[in-house]
Simulated scan of single mutants.
Amino acid sequence: MTSDTVPRPRTARQMKSAARLYAVQALFQMEASDQGTEGVIREFLDHRFGASYDGDEMAEGDPDHFREVVEQAVNWQARIDQMTDRALVAKWPIARLDPTLRALFRACGAELVALDTPPRVAISEYVEIARAFFPEGREAGFVNAVLDHMAREARPEAF
């Protein structure tokens, strides 16, 4: 998984954006290593937020938003995965997706289902994260379409 370093954010919005990126990375790590929620949250807060490795500085992130996204993605994973499956074509269920995309859909799904993030903000933020992980591909458009479908299901009143 790439995109480990991002510039140091200066505003609350940038801190939330960094927290979202870290949440996607944490959810990816949890799936890849079978690490538990509290362990991965603690690791990120202690060793990633604002850390410096080989001269590269990691971004400061909003620790509360990071924790909420990760915890709610785990708490609501079954519903989020079902929403994602409904947004995908029948021959390509969530289990066949790249694990980074699964983590991204789960993180954004948490914001759509359990947090008060406006759907357009969540979609925009996670499409940007998709661009960071897949700069050469068509994934950003794919992510946008899936997240739009998920948002309309989770929060139809917002559209």
Score class of each variant (00 low, 15 high):
Ser3Trp: 07
Tyr22Ile: 03
Pro9Trp: 01
Asp4Tyr: 14
Ser17Glu: 14
Glu43Arg: 15
Met1Gly: 10
Lys16Val: 08
Phe44Gln: 05
Tyr22Lys: 03
Gln29His: 11
Asp4Ala: 06
Met15Lys: 13
Thr2Pro: 12
Arg10Ser: 04
Arg10Asn: 03
Glu38Leu: 08
Ala32Cys: 00
Lys16Ser: 02
Met30Leu: 06
Ser3Met: 06
Val40Asn: 00
Gln35Gly: 06
Gly36His: 04
Ile41Ser: 00
Glu31Arg: 15
Ser17Ile: 07
Ala12Val: 12
Val6Thr: 12
Ala12Thr: 07
Asp4Asn: 13
Leu27Thr: 14
Arg42Asp: 11
Gly39Phe: 00
Met15Val: 09
Arg20Asp: 11
Asp34Leu: 12
Pro9Val: 08
Met1Lys: 05
Thr5Asn: 14
Ala32His: 04
Phe44Ala: 05
Phe28Glu: 09
Asp4Phe: 15
Ser17Thr: 08
Ala19Leu: 06
Arg42His: 07
Gln35Tyr: 05
Ser33Pro: 03
Val6Lys: 10
Gln29Glu: 13
Met30Ala: 06
Asp4Cys: 11
Thr37Ile: 07
Pro9Asn: 04
Leu21Ser: 02
Glu43Leu: 15
Arg13Trp: 05
Gly36Arg: 05
Gln14Lys: 11
Thr11Gln: 00
Arg42Cys: 05
Glu31Trp: 10
Gly36Asn: 11
Gly36Pro: 00
Leu45Gln: 12
Ala32Asp: 02
Ala18His: 02
Asp34Trp: 03
Met30Asp: 03
Val6Cys: 07
Thr37Val: 09
Ile41Met: 00
Ala19Gln: 02
Thr11Ser: 13
Met15Pro: 02
Gln29Tyr: 12
Thr11Gly: 01
Met30Phe: 07
Leu45Ser: 03
Pro9Glu: 01
Asp4Ile: 10
Pro9Gly: 10
Leu27Glu: 06
Val6Glu: 09
Glu43Ala: 15
Thr2Gln: 13
Ala26Gln: 04
Ala23Glu: 02
Thr5Asp: 13
Met30Lys: 03
Gln14His: 12
Gln14Leu: 04
Val24Lys: 00
Arg10Gln: 08
Ile41Cys: 01
Gly39Met: 05
Met1Pro: 10
Thr2Trp: 10
Gln29Ala: 14
